[in-house]
Simulated scan of single mutants.
Amino acid sequence: MKAPPFDGKRALLAALVLVLLGLFLYVALRSGPLARIPVTTARVQEASIHPVRFGIGTVEARQIHRIGPTLTGRLLQLDAEVGDSVRAGQVLGEMDPVDLDDRIQAQEAALSRARVLAQESRIRQDRAEVQLRRYETLLKASAISEETTSDKRHELKLARSALQAATRDIERLRAELAALRAQRRNLALVSPIDGFVLTRDADPGTTLMAGQAVVQVIAPGTLWIDARFDQAGSAGLSEGLAVRIVLRSRGLEPVEGRVARVEPVADAITEELLAKIAFDTPPAPPPALGELAETTVELPATPPGPVIPNAAIHQQDGRPGVWRIEDGRPVFAPIRVGAADVRGMVQVLDGLRAGDLVVVHSASPLTVRSRIRATGPAPQGPAA
């Protein structure tokens, strides 16, 4: 038989079809549904975890000294402004003494008069004693009668009683004068500590009740953080742990501190645990009371064990797990996780061993049938 003639157009069309089919297969295998999913991986490390607890709180003062009058009166002067530094014993202001200075002056005059009277009584007593001795001598010589001597004894007794009364009067006047002077000193508003003025609650001319605060003074060394931590993640929080404090006004400049106290009563409504965080060194200038602060408490390191990046953990059927690579294919492995640190590393208590290869990131969700292509290891923090 004679061979069919060569048809160049059909051959060219067939070649074009083959090329298009090859391109389709190439695209399908490289970026289509049949393509391998690019993933980044990480090896399970054997390392320790430094667990952290995050809390937020406000700057507070352990002690606030509220300085005010002990008696009702009018504020005469006040020489303290908010933010002023004060010293212990410094007079910040004074209450109006009204007639107290006049009463002190009158009491001093009365005390001087009582001293003069006491001196006169002492002189009369001495004179009566001398006369009584002389009359008793005359009585022994039968120069005078017993009745006359008895009168002198009575005069001495009266002189002694007058001196005792004058002495008691002096003691009473002294006590009253000391009370008036103490009352006068209490009119001065004195700072009990070295610190700074927190608030100024009254102005000169204001009538104040006893115990009402005029100024409030605190010491910079008494500032601390009233912090709150989630109860669900507060295990291990205890007194003495190091704390990294970031004050809202200081940006990213951390301040070091310590857990001063963990409160024995938690907040049942917000489900938070309360703790007091003390500064290692009081910040200068001192932060404002009520300023927000972020606190990071670093707990003691855990024993060495398997750790993975937090990004590698996924949830399936309510259980945490990771995609572990076995023979080039992903297999979902349930795990039990423990503590985490600030680097994003998580302790694995069960389900993985050191050296296992796990998927950290994938371009699309994985299944057990997924074909994967490793693009390189995921960046990790340094092992602890």
Rank of each mutant, 00 (worst) to 15 (best):
W224L: 06
Q45E: 13
E291L: 02
V346H: 05
P5A: 10
I64V: 15
R115Q: 10
L71A: 14
P254R: 06
L357Y: 02
A278K: 04
S234Q: 00
L78I: 11
L76F: 11
G257R: 00
H50V: 09
T270E: 12
L292N: 02
G376D: 09
L352I: 14
L21S: 14
G22H: 03
P365E: 15
Y26S: 12
L139R: 11
A110Q: 14
H50K: 10
L189N: 05
F229C: 08
N186F: 07
L289A: 03
A141K: 15
T72M: 06
Q77K: 07
I225D: 02
A275M: 04
D341E: 07
V19T: 11
D96Y: 07
G221E: 12
L117T: 05
L156A: 10
A42R: 00
P264A: 12
R373I: 06
L117R: 11
D230C: 05
D194S: 12
E294Q: 12
L21W: 09
L357P: 01
V307L: 03
V246S: 10
M345T: 02
R133P: 00
G338R: 08
L349G: 10
R122I: 02
I308Q: 04
T167M: 01
H314I: 10
S161Y: 05
G233C: 04
V360W: 05
T58N: 13
A88H: 07
A266E: 05
G344I: 04
G57T: 04
P38F: 03
G22S: 11
L23H: 08
A118T: 01
E120H: 09
S370I: 12
F279M: 07
L289M: 07
R62Y: 12
E298C: 00
